[in-house]
Every structure is written in structure tokens, then in C-alpha cells.
């Protein structure tokens, strides 16, 4: 008797599991649709005309016409040159990525490898400042830059990334797991200078970590609106998110002249680089999320 009950319980369990499986898949597929539908509608709307009432699920024929609008005279007088803004964004994001990844690795290396009196204090200090939102100092920074005549410059958007506590935090964790001190000592034995050791021996070992952090830093700088908006108001200095914000402000002030086809095409181009990076490297990015542990 007991045995038959056991088997009966087992089959009931299996059907239960089956049901839970179906529920899980339904919920997951629903969430996939919710996550992807906006992007699908974005693409569709980028092929539609200036005025777009209602919803449409199939593409229209104006894709190339809308691309043309991004590069025409009318756009340039309203928002400045698109290629210029695109280049600005690429420039700022690339410099910021290189600086923040290189110097944070160097900083983490200093704390990881060397024994000095302030070692612990420095580590704790950086962990603490990691928790301070940069926006809390934004007003002081902005007034300082105004006084120094450094608004409308890329210096405040790139140089400060040398001190990136979150990247430091990631790097030092990575070093603890993958950078044995014996390698550094071996390099010393062979007469390799300290700075050269870091550049030629340590950096290659850190490559996977540098790549993951590089992607995150590039993406967050590419998407950054707050600081560029605060600092850049000359048309030729604007980055893509600043132009996007301008387009939205234009919709608010002149809703009648807004061109929905152009706006959606702009958004497509604005997110394109990151979408390409993501499609190519999504494995590293998703894998890096739980490693980084500290992300807003």
C-alpha cells in the first residue's frame, strides 16, 4: 500500500512540475514580448511618415527618406550636424573607456600588489566614495567648471573618469582571483621595472576583466545624459543624448511641427552602436553583471 501511494505521489508531482513549467514558459514568453515589442515598434515607426496616428505592426516605405532627414539642412539648423554629434559621442565614450579602465586597473594594482602603510585606508576610502553618487557634487563641479571656462569642453567628460571607483572595485576583485603575486616577483627577478611589469605583463593577464569593464564604461558614457546636458550647449559640442533631449524639448514646445518619422529614426541611430555591441558580446555583458556586483 505504502509503495503504491509513493508512486501515485510521484506522478502527481510530475504533473505539478509540468504545469509549473508551462506557467513559467508562458510568463517568460510574455516578458520577452513586453521587452521586445517597444523595439519592434521603434523600427516600424522609423519607417512611417511625419504624423503617425495609431498603432501599426507592418513597416511603411519611408525608411530611407527618414534617414535622409537626419542629414538634411532642416535638421542641421534645428539640432546641429548629426555626424558631428555621433562623432562627439564616440570620441567621449572611447576616451573615457580607455582612461577609466587603464587607470582603475593601475590603482587596483597598486593596492593589490604593494605593501604600504595606507593600503587598507585607501581601499576603504575608495569603497566609501563608490557609494557617493556623483550627482551630489554636480553643482559644485559645474560652478567650478563655469569659473574655469571649461563648459563646452570634453575635458570634464573624459579626464574625471580616471577616478572610477566601481571599475577599481571590479578590478581588485578580479586581481584577487587571477593575478598571483609570483608573476610580479618573477618579473622583478628578471629585472623588469615596476611600471613596465604592469604594462607588459599584468595588463595582458587582466584582458578579460578590462574587456568586460570597458564595455560597461563605454555603454554608460554613450548613454549619459546628465553631465553632458549640464555642460554642453554649443551645437558642435553636443553628444547624442543631449540632442535627443533637445528633440524632446522641441516636441514639448512645438507639437504641431514635430516629425515622428525623424524622431524614431534618430532613436534607432542613437541606440544602434550599443545594440550592435550587445548582440556581439551579450555573453560577456550578462556574465559581467553578477561579477561586478555593484551597479546602480
Amino acid at each position: 500500500m505504502a509503495r503504491i501511494e509513493g508512486i501515485a505521489g510521484e506522478t502527481e508531482n510530475q504533473t505539478q512540475t509540468k504545469i509549473r513549467q508551462i506557467v513559467a514558459y508562458v510568463v517568460l514568453i510574455f516578458l520577452m514580448v513586453v521587452s521586445l515589442l517597444p523595439f519592434y515598434l521603434l523600427l516600424i515607426n522609423a519607417t512611417r511618415p511625419k504624423v503617425q496616428p495609431g498603432i501599426q505592426f507592418y513597416p511603411d516605405s519611408l525608411f530611407f527618406k527618414n534617414i535622409g532627414k537626419i542629414f538634411d539642412e532642416n535638421y542641421r539648423t534645428n539640432y546641429g550636424s548629426f555626424p558631428r554629434a555621433f562623432f562627439n559621442s564616440i570620441f567621449v565614450s572611447t576616451i573615457a573607456t580607455v582612461l577609466s579602465v587603464y587607470f582603475s586597473a593601475l590603482t587596483a594594482y597598486a593596492v593589490h600588489v604593494y605593501d604600504f602603510r595606507l593600503k587598507k585606508a585607501v581601499h576603504t576610502f575608495i569603497l566609501i566614495v563608490m557609494m557617493v553618487p556623483t550627482q551630489a557634487a554636480a553643482i559644485g563641479l559645474y560652478r567650478m567648471l563655469v569659473n574655469m571656462n571649461l563648459t563646452n569642453s570634453f575635458i570634464p567628460l573624459t579626464i574625471p573618469t580616471i577616478a572610477a571607483p566601481a571599475v577599481y572595485f571590479f578590478m581588485i576583485q578580479y586581481m584577487a582571483s587571477s593575478l598571483p603575486l609570483e608573476i610580479v616577483e618573477a618579473a622583478r627577478m628578471d629585472g623588469c621595472g615596476e611600471y613596465r611589469t604592469f604594462n607588459t605583463i599584468v595588463l595582458p593577464i587582466l584582458k578579460p576583466a578590462l574587456a568586460v569593464q570597458g564595455i560597461f564604461v563605454f555603454v554608460s558614457n554613450w548613454n549619459n545624459l546628465f553631465f553632458p546636458q549640464m555642460l554642453l550647449d554649443k551645437p558642435e559640442m553636443k553628444t547624442i543624448p543631449v540632442v535627443l533631449q533637445l528633440i524632446k524639448a522641441n516636441i514639448d514646445s512645438n507639437p504641431m511641427t514635430a516629425d515622428a518619422g525623424l524622431e524614431h529614426m534618430f532613436m534607432v541611430l542613437a541606440i544602434l552602436p550599443v545594440v550592435i555591441i550587445y548582440l556581439l558580446l551579450s555573453k560577456n555583458i550578462v556574465g559581467g553583471v553578477s561579477l561586478g556586483a555593484v551597479k546602480g
Partner: peptide, 30 residues
């Protein structure tokens, strides 16, 4: 080798002080 630890910390610390710590202090003052 301790001095190298300090040397390698210079860029981070200097940039942090100029672009984060000092503006933060200024913000408090304002």
C-alpha cells in the same frame, strides 16, 4: 617597493580630489 604603490595611486587620487572631492566640499560650502 612601497613607494611604487603610492606612485601608482597618484592619477586616481589627484583626479578624484580635483573633480569630485573639491566640488563636494564646495557644494557643502555653497
Amino acid at each position: 617597493y612601497a613607494k611604487w604603490g603610492y606612485i601608482f595611486l597618484i592619477p586616481f587620487v589627484v583626479i578624484y580630489c580635483i573633480f569630485s572631492l573639491w566640488p563636494l566640499i564646495q557644494t557643502f560650502g555653497y
